[in-house]
Design a protein around this nucleic acid. Structure first.
Lengths: 222, 222
DNA sequence: ATGTGTTTAAAACATAAGTTTGAAAAGGCA
DNA sequence: TGCCTTTTCAAACTTATGTTTTAAACACAT
């Protein structure tokens, strides 16, 4: 049932964060019970509240530690692409790569690929819990603005509405597809392999880069 | 807090299904409590178990009643497109329209556009609850096969892996984007309007049709 | 060694939620 | 009307879960 056991000797706070990560990824916020987390972490139930104050605070801290480095890497890659483009418009594909590829790096732990981490990121977006919305605003609103700035420069012919809609589609395709990547294996009867992270991410980037080139046609009746 | 009140006179079973619909859409499966549902339906708490046997059965029945007509409409549109193409390969855009447009019709109730219905559909995909996975397999596995059959005929040059991955991206973009369509309004500071259902769906179809044309490039290192 | 602040432990508490129960009310039919 | 079935209702039951409490164990400086 559980994933790789958390090594003994690790201090309690760290063990809690690690256990929360796996359980949140697999079962979502509501399904993350402190009893399950403390059991997997092999620590006492009360220690969760002792160290973090509340379940919300524990999950928030876990997300912060996991998401912050990814966003830093995203901005770093975006900056790198900017310099590569000599501060002119960045090719859209490079922008999307900067957004997407850091997720691959983060999912590749020391003990192989951890797909439940991708679920975790996806859930942080789709969770209905009210406080998760705040979480997301905290971590992603500013990032979206920065990326939108570059996208705008790269697609001068598109309207603002076009760009925001396309970014919306891209973000949701990214989070949904990665979060649910196990499903494509089942659907395709094993032809697609989610464990091939690079393959998956490259396909995703190509798909979204193409999608972005859609100049939205005028509304038509269906 | 609640949406439009459910008209009195409606029989209990119907009231429960309608209330469950709105609450499930807004708060997900775990957040759908029988107490909240029966309160919104203005019926007694015990009636949920009396009429449906369990919370799972109530939600399942609600989903069945909502999803089944959509899938029928999807197959009808696909068939229509097939005949329009004189039983040759169907244009990819038409296939995607058959998949997506019925969601718009379903979200347009008698009292205006009901965006929470789109959330409902999206959640039925992303919910971590184990039984929701079964729900989904029940309703969508066969549908995916049928659509894949047509997609395959329309893209003879692509590999099976290409097609399944692209379909995966498209489905997740569709469900995620529609489910979270409120967010694009916030992100764009009101430039994008989710209430304009036709506009949103047309943009989505265009985006995905373009994305599908991505011939996945060979894996490259990043 | 002793005292002090920190961490862990077991148990209890309070609340929320799915379900069950038994009686009352409503509906239908001879 | 009288009888039977179906439905509604209020209340209780059971379990799950976040949180708190109190004491013991521990770490470490004096």
């Amino acid at each position: 049932m559980s994933t790789v056991a958390i090594p003994r000797g690790t201090d309690t706070k760290e063990r809690l964060l690690r256990a929360a990560e796996g359980i949140f990824g697999r079962h979502g916020y509501a399904g993350t019970t402190l009893r399950a987390v403390t059991a997997e972490a092999e620590v006492n139930l009360a220690s969760a509240n002792y160290h973090f104050g509340s379940k919300e605070a524990l999950v928030m801290e876990m997300l912060r530690q996991r998401v912050a480095p990814i966003n830093e890497e995203r901005l770093r890659l975006l900056d790198e692409a900017k310099r590569k483009a000599e501060f002119g418009p960045i090719p859209l594909e490079d922008i999307l790569e900067a957004l997407i590829m850091p997720l691959g790096g983060a999912a590749r732990g020391q003990d192989g690929t951890d797909l439940s981490f991708l679920q975790l990121v996806g859930r942080s977006f789709s969770e209905p819990a009210e406080f998760m919305r705040r979480v997301h605003d905290t971590f992603f609103r500013e990032l979206a603005e920065v990326f939108m700035g570059e996208i705008r420069r790269s697609c001068p012919q598109a309207t603002e509405a076009d760009l925001w809609w396309n970014l919306h589609f891209a973000i949701n395709a990214m989070l949904g597809s990665l979060s649910q990547c196990r499903r494509v294996e089942a659907m395709s009867n094993g032809i697609c392999e989610a464990a091939d992270l690079d393959g998956m991410l490259n396909r995703l980037v190509a798909f979204l880069a193409n999608g972005f080139q859609a100049n939205t046609p005028p509304s038509r009746t269906v």
